[in-house]
Lab assay of single mutants.
Amino acid sequence: KNAAQIVDEALNQGITLFVADNRLQYETSRDNIPEELLNEWKYYRQDLIDFLQQLD
């Protein structure tokens, strides 16, 4: 998997990933985040941060 796929997957589930103060953050109206997504975000944290910062 790559960062773009993970960001896309999150968006499809109503979750927006973004970077604030060099930390990976998310916004969602969901009550909870599936644990497998959280684990994936932790595992790919630096890739996601790098990818999202390139988009800014």
Results as ranks from 00 to 15, higher is better:
K1S: 04
K1F: 04
K1Y: 04
N2A: 10
N2I: 09
A3D: 01
A3Y: 03
A3M: 12
A3K: 01
A4G: 08
Q5C: 05
Q5H: 06
I6G: 00
I6K: 00
V7I: 13
D8L: 15
E9D: 10
E9L: 04
E9A: 06
L11D: 05
L11A: 13
N12W: 08
Q13C: 05
G14I: 03
G14H: 06
G14T: 02
G14P: 01
I15P: 00
T16E: 07
T16K: 14
T16R: 15
F18C: 07
F18A: 05
F18I: 09
F18S: 09
F18E: 03
V19T: 05
A20E: 14
A20N: 11
A20G: 07
A20V: 14
A20W: 10
D21Q: 07
D21W: 05
D21Y: 06
R23T: 15
L24Y: 01
Q25N: 08
Q25T: 07
Y26R: 01
Y26C: 05
E27R: 15
E27P: 02
E27G: 06
T28A: 07
S29H: 12
S29I: 11
R30E: 08
R30P: 03
D31I: 09
D31S: 06
D31G: 09
N32L: 09
N32T: 13
I33K: 01
I33E: 01
I33W: 03
P34Q: 05
E35K: 09
E35D: 11
E35F: 09
E36D: 12
E36F: 09
E36G: 09
E36V: 10
L37G: 01
L37P: 01
L37M: 12
L38H: 05
L38T: 06
L38P: 02
N39F: 10
E40K: 08
E40L: 12
W41F: 11
K42L: 14
Y43F: 12
Y43C: 06
Y44V: 03
R45Q: 15
R45W: 14
R45L: 15
R45D: 09
Q46V: 10
Q46R: 08
D47P: 08
L48M: 03
L48H: 00
L48W: 01
L48Y: 01
I49P: 00
I49H: 04
D50S: 11
F51I: 03
F51W: 10
L52Q: 00
L52E: 00
L52D: 00
L52R: 00
Q53T: 14
Q53L: 14
Q53H: 10
Q54E: 11
L55Y: 12
L55G: 11
L55N: 13
L55H: 12
D56K: 08
